[in-house]
Amino acid sequence: MLAANRKIERTIDVALQQANGLTSSEFAVLVTLSEAPERQLRLRDLCAGLDWDRSRTSHQITRMERRGLVNKVKCEGDGRGVIVSLTADGLARLDEAAPSHVETVRRLVIDDLNHQDIPVISRFFQGILDEEVLEDCDCQD
């Protein structure tokens, strides 16, 4: 499982870097924000959506803000909260990267599946996603 996961992550990361100059972490943030209402989320909700801790998410957003892919602003009426939003450049980069990302995943994972494997693997991954994880995650903002 670990070896397969590393292979998938590394292949996706290399493909995104070479084709689009994005890391897989940047791509994950862009996708999550693009699917959110008004293409923005509170930082704590972005943490939860990505299943990342607060520190990792905060550092990633700071790097992406420097590159012009996202903006972050304080929440109105809540001095502790932070809103992260997708910029026009971030959306354009996502739109550019999505087709090659889909192709990479298709080639690496989907092409080797038999038609009857798809429901089985779908149930397998859904079981993992549904499993509660015990962790010490500080996703407050």
Rank of each mutant, 00 (worst) to 15 (best):
L129I: 09
R93D: 11
A48Q: 15
L134I: 11
F124W: 13
Q17V: 04
L129N: 15
M1N: 11
L94W: 10
V105W: 01
R106I: 05
E38N: 11
V109F: 07
A19S: 09
T104P: 01
A19I: 00
I118E: 02
T104I: 03
K7S: 15
A28H: 05
G21C: 03
T62W: 03
C139I: 14
A3E: 14
D112H: 09
E35N: 08
E26W: 00
V31I: 10
I83G: 00
A48H: 15
I8R: 08
V84F: 01
H59S: 12
I118M: 08
F125Q: 03
G21A: 01
D45Q: 10
L33G: 11
V73C: 00
N114R: 12
W52R: 05
E132T: 14
S100D: 12
D89R: 13
S34N: 13
V105K: 01
G81L: 04
E96T: 09
V82T: 13
D45R: 15
L91M: 05
S24N: 12
N114P: 00
G21F: 06
M1E: 09
S55P: 13
D78Q: 10
A3W: 02
T57P: 04
D117N: 03
H115F: 10
K72Q: 07
R67W: 08
I61T: 11
T87W: 03
N5V: 14
K72V: 00
A28V: 03
E38S: 14
A19H: 08
C75T: 10
R56M: 07
E35R: 07
L134R: 12
R6S: 13
G21V: 02
E26G: 07
V82E: 14
R93W: 07
G127V: 15
D136V: 15
E38D: 14
S25G: 05
D13I: 04
L86Q: 03
S25A: 14
G49H: 13
C47H: 01
R123W: 01
H59D: 07
A92W: 03
V31K: 09
R10E: 08
R123K: 06
L22G: 02
P37E: 00
I8K: 12
K72N: 00
L30S: 08
Q40P: 01
R106K: 09
E76T: 00
K7M: 10
I121G: 01
V133Y: 10
L30C: 05
I8T: 09
R67Q: 10
S24F: 01
L50K: 05
W52Q: 09
I128V: 15
D95H: 13
F27H: 10
L134T: 11
L50Y: 06
L43Q: 06
R63H: 08
D141C: 08
V133Q: 14
L50W: 06
Q18P: 07
Q140K: 14
T104H: 01
N114K: 10
F124M: 12
G127F: 15
V70I: 02
A88Q: 14
A19K: 07
R10H: 09
E76A: 08
Q140R: 15
E9T: 05
P37N: 02
H101S: 05
L69E: 02
L134P: 09
V14Y: 07
